[in-house]
Structure formats: structure tokens, C-alpha cells
Design a binder for these strands. Structure first.
Lengths: 234, 234
DNA sequence: ACAAAAGTGTTTAGCGTACACCCATGA
DNA sequence: TCATGGGTGTACGCTAAACACTTTTGT
């Protein structure tokens, strides 16, 4: 029967898939790796788990190092542990995905890391198994967003109905009827209509909404149906 | 910027939450731990990740060691990494949950481990954070089973409609209208009706069904609606 | 003949979808 | 005044839920 003695020890890392929405498309925040192996290759932001922190703590720290942000939506995705995934030394990586308001990142951008946003639909080759992580995260995002109001995490405090719909349409690579979409969204009472308009994208202007935080947190786990036929879109 | 050198290494383990259904209730397979610390305490079946195997491989191996079974439904649940979760030495544990046909286990039971089935509703205190893992697995099972036909993994090849309904009712701790239930289930064409009956639980007997494997694997990810108001049951 | 569990159909209400026109404004 | 994007209402079909009686057979 197994004992502790003589067991192999491994490096344990955390990698973050960071999503942002620029109003048009879903984007991915990547960095140029700063050390060997694969120095200067594109990579997810990551780091090793330190002795005093837990896994969520490590992910939060890493996200904060890059973006300067705290209180961001962050969720453990999956542990990756192929023996050779890191050619330097066996490393188990726990991947997390994060949803951030891209505008907030712009304000606090760190220049310690050479970070850049890439459209999710066209990002560069990445080191190790990081592309696998991203594809998995994309699937998980679609899956979860088809059931829960998770995409609001990507929007600024104030946003318009067309913006919200654009976001959903970009995530699912499709288009929805705007009448049905807004009716469904509003029927959840997740949104509060504000009195001012965004005049930047049309002549008429579009009313701003903000999240009803209470409703949002209390009913986060309820199943929504914003997406007509989600089966085939995931 | 972070380098590999000087980083701490940790033990990496896999723990399996193993569910089985005895026709009445959902059960959990636990073992008496065979080594210190916490020797002879109840525990999930687990083991350390070996140098040549990946995480899924480790989980499969561990499940096989205990049950003698292969090809079992197995899904990564979550990585646990609190610094002190194992008092002996820092160990990152990747938890998996497995769904097995309890009858198959009985045939192949291993006596290397002191294993026992416990009702999910009343299981003993477990070592470390294993109870947290179980509660999480229970939630995940409910969540997933409300959308996908995952519970069939717990049933034998041939099963009856009342058996299936009992299973769902036990998982969600509620009861369903049998007319609506069977109609919904049959409408998916996931089941094939057989010609023989189970005569053991009633005088009339209940027809056996088996899974339509093709339908099952092809449409596994489609969303089902066997459960009336899942929101409040998860 | 009776008890115990299996099996089966219909009605109704609410939800989800499809669909088209008016509004407000800046140019 | 016209072009552009924003905003809104209705009709219909389908699905999901509620609900009760008949069948089988062992005792």
C-alpha cells in the first residue's frame, strides 16, 4: 500500500485564460514568456504555486500581477498533467479562466509583462498545451454562458442592450432576434434601466443598463434561456 | 520574473469519489486508509501520480486497483491545494468522480483495501478535505444529471423504468409523476425496450430497457429536461 | 377477489419563436 | 429629408405539467 516516502514531487503551476470583450469581439490576453524554455514565445499568464498560498490564491495573485485587478471573476477550469507537457521539468498546471472588463485592464496595464490582446478567433501559437487550455476554456465559457449570466462579467458597469447582444452573438458566432433577446433578458430582472444613453454608436442613442447585483448574485445558479438552440452551438 | 530554479515541489495525488446505485439509494465507496497519517480512518480511494502517467491515467489506475473495473465513467472534478490539507506534507490532490454499476463492483471486489459502500446521505467523517470533495461531487452530479443522461452510468445493462425513476428521485430527493417521467425519457429515444420483464419487485413485472448506445454517445451533450424545476434542486 | 405495482392519454396553460413597423436623431 | 441604428407588440404552435384509471398477476 502506498506511502509518502519515495514518491516523486512535481512543480505545480497555475495558468490563467483571461477573456475580455472590446465591444466587437471576445479577446484573449496573452504574454510573451520572459524566461527559458520558450523565452519570447506567446503564452498564457502563469506562475508556480507558492508554499503559503492555495490554488485560488495563486490564480488571484497571478491575475493581479498582470492586470492590477482584484475581485475578478475567476474559475478553476482543469488540471493538466501530461508528463512531458513542460519539456523542462514535469509540471502539473491548474488552469483558471478569468472574465474581465477590458476597459479596467487598460487603465491598470502592467508593463512588466509584454502582454497583448488577441481576438479569440485568431490567436498565435502558444507554448506547451496552452492552446488546449484555451479551447477548453472557450467551450466552458459557451457552455456556462448558455445557462448562467456569466457574460455580464465582461461588460463595464454601464452597457447597452445592443452591446450585450453583440457579446452573446460573438460568443456563439451567430445572431439573435433583438426583440426576443431583449425581452428574455429583461424578463429576468437582472438589469436596471438607466436614464442616460450611449450616443456613440447611433444617432438615436441606446439606453444604458446596469446589473441588478442582488438579483445577479442570488439567482446566479438559476438556469437561463437566452440562447435559442444551445445544443448545436456548444 | 519567475524561473524554475528554487521553486518548491509538491506531492500530487488523485482522489476518487465513487458513486454507485443499489436500486434504492445513491452510495459512496470508501476505504479504510492503510497508512499513516490517519491510518484506519475512512477516506476516499486515492494515490500519488506516478512519473510516467498523466492525471486521467492515475485516476483510472486507482479506480482499477480498487474495483477491478475498466472503462468506467470518470470525470475530473477539481484540484484541491490548501497548503495544510494533508498535515504530513503539502499535497495537491486532483479529485475525480466515477459512476459505476454497483453490481459489477460486487463481482470484482478487491480485498486489499477495506472498502465499504455508504449511503450518500449518511457517510462517516473522512480524512483531510475529503468531505468537501464529496459535497462538491454531489453537487456536480446533480447539476450534470439535470442536463445530460449521465445517471445511466450507474445502472446495469438492463433496467426498468421504475428503477430509473427511483434513481432520479433519490439523486434529487424528490418525486416525479411517472407518466410525465417515462414519456420524457422515452421521447429522447435513448432507450430500447426489451421483451423480458423484471418480476422481482411486482406481480405484474416491469419491462426491461437498455441504453441505445449510439443515441447516447452521439447526443450526450444535448440538453435534456427530465427534471421539472432543477433550479431549486441543485 | 383483492392488493400492489406497472402502464398508459388527454387537457390546458405558459413559454418560446417568428415576424415588421415606428422612433429619434445627426448629417 | 433621409439614412442609421434603437426600440417595441402580437399571434401561433409546441412543450411541459397536472391529473386518474386500467392492467396484470401472485396470494
Amino acid at each position: 500500500m502506498t506511502q509518502y516516502k519515495g514518491q516523486e514531487h512535481y512543480l505545480v503551476a497555475v495558468d490563467c485564460i483571461i477573456f475580455g470583450f472590446d465591444g466587437e469581439h471576445l479577446n484573449l490576453l496573452l504574454i510573451k514568456r520572459g524566461f527559458e524554455p520558450k523565452k519570447n514565445k506567446w503564452s498564457l499568464m502563469g506562475g508556480f504555486v507558492q508554499p503559503t498560498e492555495d490554488l485560488d490564491g495563486a490564480a488571484k495573485r497571478i491575475l493581479h500581477q498582470l492586470t492590477g485587478l482584484k475581485g475578478v471573476y475567476l474559475e478553476q477550469l482543469k488540471a493538466f498533467g501530461q508528463p512531458k507537457r513542460d519539456p523542462e521539468e514535469r509540471t502539473i498546471s491548474i488552469s483558471y479562466f478569468a472574465l474581465i472588463d477590458i476597459n479596467q485592464y487598460k487603465e491598470k496595464i502592467s508593463d512588466t509583462y509584454a502582454a497583448e490582446w488577441f481576438p479569440l478567433k485568431k490567436y498565435p501559437k502558444l507554448i506547451f498545451d496552452h492552446d488546449k487550455m484555451i479551447e477548453l476554456a472557450k467551450g466552458r465559457l459557451r457552455y456556462k454562458a448558455s445557462l448562467h449570466p456569466i457574460l455580464f462579467e465582461l461588460l463595464p458597469e454601464k452597457f447597452t442592450m445592443p452591446q450585450l447582444q453583440n457579446l452573446y452573438e460573438d460568443v456563439y458566432d451567430t445572431s439573435f432576434d433583438k426583440r426576443n433577446f431583449s425581452r428574455k433578458v429583461l424578463s429576468t430582472s437582472l438589469l436596471v434601466k438607466l436614464n442616460d444613453k450611449d450616443m456613440s454608436t447611433s444617432k438615436k442613442g441606446a439606453f444604458y443598463y446596469k446589473l441588478n447585483k442582488k438579483q445577479y448574485t442570488e439567482n446566479f445558479h438559476s438556469f437561463l434561456k437566452f440562447i435559442p438552440n444551445p445544443d448545436h452551438l456548444l
